[in-house]
């Protein structure tokens, strides 16, 4: 009896140790980025063009490029993803077609990000002739984030009680009217949370945009959606591996800006989720 108790104590201690090994690096990474990155953050750094082969000046075009690209992605993937989830949750029967769609979503979620880059290059950049451009990058990222949006929207839709639908149908509503007036309004907080998280992922992606939109050095803002753009994740890659003698301060500063953008999106998402949980009446 004593022995089994002691075994348990040792086992739990080992589990705790493993968990600490997993979680502490996260903390260290954040502290590192915050403290090394903060000194770089000045209004010039945020709002100026890069100078001297990116060794000085700011990262304004990369910030703007990331924002444009994320918006473009959202514009393409959110409506499509929500409608796809509506189809799966509200219209589809449980049959082989639905199963095939589900498997397709799982596979889209698992395709390596660099393969999306290749796909975007051959379809959007070359075949459709968009060239390396914001639109090609947005479309590529949109397809990549689609599974995230579909899955989270579906969860939000199925959290709406069945009885609401039954009431709506019983009053003579068509399927779309039921979706439009009862299901979607009550699922919106969940959908928002999921889509914002999807966008935060898109904002941080590098591999899919390498050959579809990212410009190595372009000290001006993109002029149209057929224009190339600098983007933060690729800029970090360039600063840390492609350009010699970039000061650590600028590197960390750029990393901090990207991490902040991604985390602001994450925090907004969890805020909506928390607020909604409190307000939920059913």
């Amino acid at each position: 009896m004593r022995d089994t108790k002691r075994t348990e104590k040792i086992a739990f201690a080992l589990l705790l140790a493993a968990t600490i090994v997993v979680v502490t690096p996260v903390l260290i990474i954040f502290v590192l980025i915050l403290f090394r990155g903060l000194p770089a953050i000045t209004s010039e750094f945020i709002f100026a063009m890069p100078r001297e082969g990116m060794r000085a000046g700011g990262i304004f075009p990369a910030i703007v490029g990331t924002i444009y690209l994320t918006f473009g992605t959202a514009l393409c993937s959110i409506p499509l993803g929500i409608l796809a989830a509506v189809y799966l949750n509200e219209y589809a029967q449980k049959n082989w077609l639905t199963r095939v769609i589900e498997l397709a979503i799982i596979n889209l979620a698992g395709v390596p990000s660099i393969v999306y880059g290749l796909f975007g290059l051959s379809l959007f950049v070359a075949f459709l002739g968009f060239g390396s451009s914001l639109i090609a990058g947005s479309l590529t990222l949109a397809i990549m984030t689609l599974p995230v949006i579909i899955t989270s929207t579906r969860e939000a839709l199925s959290a709406v009680p069945k009885s609401f639908r039954e009431v709506s149908f019983s009053l003579g509503a068509s399927r779309w009217q039921t979706v439009r007036y009862v299901v979607l309004p009550n699922a919106i907080p969940g959908i928002l949370t999921g889509t914002i998280l999807g966008m935060s992922r898109a904002a941080g992606e590098t591999a899919p945009i390498l050959f579809t939109v990212a410009a190595f050095y372009l000290p001006r803002l993109p002029q149209s959606m057929y224009d190339q753009a600098m983007v933060l994740p690729y800029h970090i890659y360039v600063l840390s591996t492609q350009v010699p003698n970039v000061s650590v301060k600028i590197q960390y500063g750029t990393v901090l800006v990207l991490v902040l953008m991604v985390f602001v999106l994450n925090i907004v998402a969890s805020y909506i989720r928390a607020k909604f949980r409190k307000k939920k009446t059913w």
Binding site: F164, S170, N186
Partner: peptide, 11 residues
């Protein structure tokens, strides 16, 4: 029209 077993107001 139908009235269900439980009161089911919409939100």
């Amino acid at each position: 029209g139908i009235v269900f077993a439980m009161p089911l107001p919409l939100p």
